[in-house]
Nucleic acid binder design. Structure first.
Lengths: 211, 211
DNA sequence: GGGTTGAATGTGACTTTATCACTGAAGTCC
DNA sequence: GGACTTCAGTGATAAAGTCACATTCAACCC
């Protein structure tokens, strides 16, 4: 059955009550969980699949902020839920995602009655802040070529990645042309093989991999 | 007396107990509240002055992430307090700062017993996430010249700012030389007057001010 | 199969930003 | 009034972003 570790820490009664009022939902790839400007309906606890959270600036450019996977909590929703402000970012399903939607009332109740639940929420917040701080540093100071290599290495596993240059540009927060040129250069150095919508990683050194 | 709005929402007993166990502290400009790698001792509630939070990346460059002022809560500390992880950033006092330090036990108790306190904490978290998301967008996509102009406008109030080019570079997350050149260009256009450690803002248009 | 279409990719030219390596200028401290 | 330190200016070059357009590929339709 649908489970999320933050619910495991609840006592029997509370868990039963919660599971009773929670909606289990399923989303296909490409589905948009929420987008900028929308208001939050409930707190999603991710129990499977993968969801990317990205934002589009006034400039019209987009950048991926972070990802959610199994056992994650949608941190952004918490703030929107409690303050009533709309989302500033957008969440897009990458791999068939399943989530438990916790309605506002239940969330309040859990925060009130379970220290373990509170800890889980706080941890999630802390992790997100950390993610974003690292991202700021990355975007502000690190070179695009090394970031690109690291990104490829991190998700190719010696194999290949199915992605367009445009999507990759959004991952890194840069322009498509920049990605195209850097990839071409990597191809010249026999580190990748390019084809339409797909990148085969052949000779990137593990040594350059950091996160 | 020392007051923080998040404590105002507590009931009489809880507030008395809290104020009893809280340490009021004072910090002069330049003082470092905490630095990267340190462990968190308690949650600071800022009740006066101004503190900037900045981080230094592996590259050795620094960037200012956000500021705290009256009635702010040091969001970063919450995560470090609850998870036991060390700080990743550094907090430096800019204007004589006063804060109430809430020890861990009291924090846990407040989270447990006051819905209003919880809401305050969550709001603070939400604001911080927002700040950082905006910063990411800013750093990734916006032009340095407009960011510089906006920064000057936001804190000059038609007067002048006491700051070195190096410090300004850290504010914007760029290199000192870049700031120097952009400022020189602004001077040529009669929009600022430069002197050692000080920038007089004379003719920047309000129209370019956002945030 | 040949043609049409739209998305994906390649690239030149140019601007902006970052980096490196200096030089000079302005304050501070004996 | 030097000696030192911090701050600021600048040329040369590299990296990254922008704009405009050319090319290529895959899919779809007769």
């Amino acid at each position: 059955m649908a489970r999320h570790s933050i619910l495991d820490s609840l006592n029997e009664t509370l868990r039963k009550e919660t599971l009773d009022k929670v909606r289990a939902m399923q989303f296909p790839p490409g589905q948009i969980l929420f987008s900028a400007g929308q208001h939050c309906q409930g707190l999603p606890l991710v129990i499977g699949g993968r969801v990317k959270v990205q934002m589009t600036g006034i400039s019209g450019h987009s950048i991926v902020l972070y990802r959610m996977g199994v056992d994650d909590i949608c941190t952004l929703s918490i703030g929107c839920l409690m303050t009533g402000r709309p989302y500033r970012a957008e969440a897009v399903v990458e791999e068939d995602a399943r989530a438990l939607m916790i309605p506002r009332g239940v969330f309040d109740r859990l925060m009130d009655q379970s220290a373990a639940f509170r800890l889980g929420i706080m941890e999630s917040y802390g992790r997100r802040l950390d993610d974003l701080m690292l991202l700021v540093e990355e975007v502000a100071f690190r070179r695009m070529d090394t970031r690109l290599e690291e990104w490829l290495l991190a998700r190719a596993n010696g194999g290949s990645v199915v992605i367009t240059h445009q999507e990759l540009a959004v991952e890194l927060g840069t322009a498509r042309e920049v990605v195209s040129r850097l990839l071409k250069e990597l191809e010249r150095r026999d580190m990748v093989k390019l084809s339409r919508g797909k990148i085969q990683v052949t000779g990137l050194l593990e040594s350059s991999a950091q996160l």
